[in-house]
């Protein structure tokens, strides 16, 4: 596997550690600059707008709009092979100035398109998710 640019050991040293840590408590946290209040995603060490290194984390409702989506027919990721074909969505969060999160889509697909409203469900860690807590996403009507 290719090395990853944001890799830090131990894991707690990663810039996006609070995000993963929050998901484990059923909380969606997105990085936000304490200095100028700019939402910052993906998480990084320095605010590109004001130059501050003082970046905090704010809770955001796990509800968003499908910005794009794909359905994967090949087992590009061995841990996901048994789910093929599966759908991924890139979800835009209105509650975080449009920050976009990647996620697995679950549930009925009828009506799924760019612009669909989806809600997130907190999932426990598994080998499939690299032992990380994650959000999966479903159409809002189906989740209701």
């Amino acid at each position: 596997m290719a090395n990853e640019r944001d890799e830090v050991h131990p894991f707690e040293g990663r810039v996006d550690f609070p995000y993963w840590d929050g998901l484990g408590r059923d909380e969606l946290l997105v990085q936000r600059c304490t200095g100028c209040a700019r939402w910052s995603w993906p998480a990084d060490w320095r605010c590109p707008r004001c130059g501050s290194y003082d970046l905090g984390w704010e809770p955001v409702e796990p509800r968003g709009v499908v910005y794009s989506w794909v359905r994967t027919h090949l087992a590009f990721v061995p841990a996901y092979a048994e789910l093929v074909p599966y759908v991924n969505v890139l979800v835009e969060l209105p509650g975080a100035d449009g920050a976009r999160l990647m996620g697995l889509f679950t549930g009925p697909e009828e009506g799924l398109e760019v612009g669909s409203v989806v809600t997130g469900t907190f999932q426990a860690p598994s080998a499939r998710t690299l032992d990380l807590s994650v959000l999966t996403w479903s159409l809002e009507v189906a989740a209701a």
């Binding site: 290719a2 090395n3 990853e4 640019r5 944001d6 890799e7 996006d16 993906p42 994967t72 590009f76 990721v77 841990a79 996901y80 789910l83 599966y86 991924n88 999160l101 990647m102 996620g103 697995l104 499939r128 998710t129 690299l130 990380l132 994650v134």
Partner: peptide, 15 residues
Amino acid sequence: QGVFGIQYRAHGIDS
């Protein structure tokens, strides 16, 4: 070259 970090791979995206 490490483009696909865990924000992708945890969700089945790695290509």
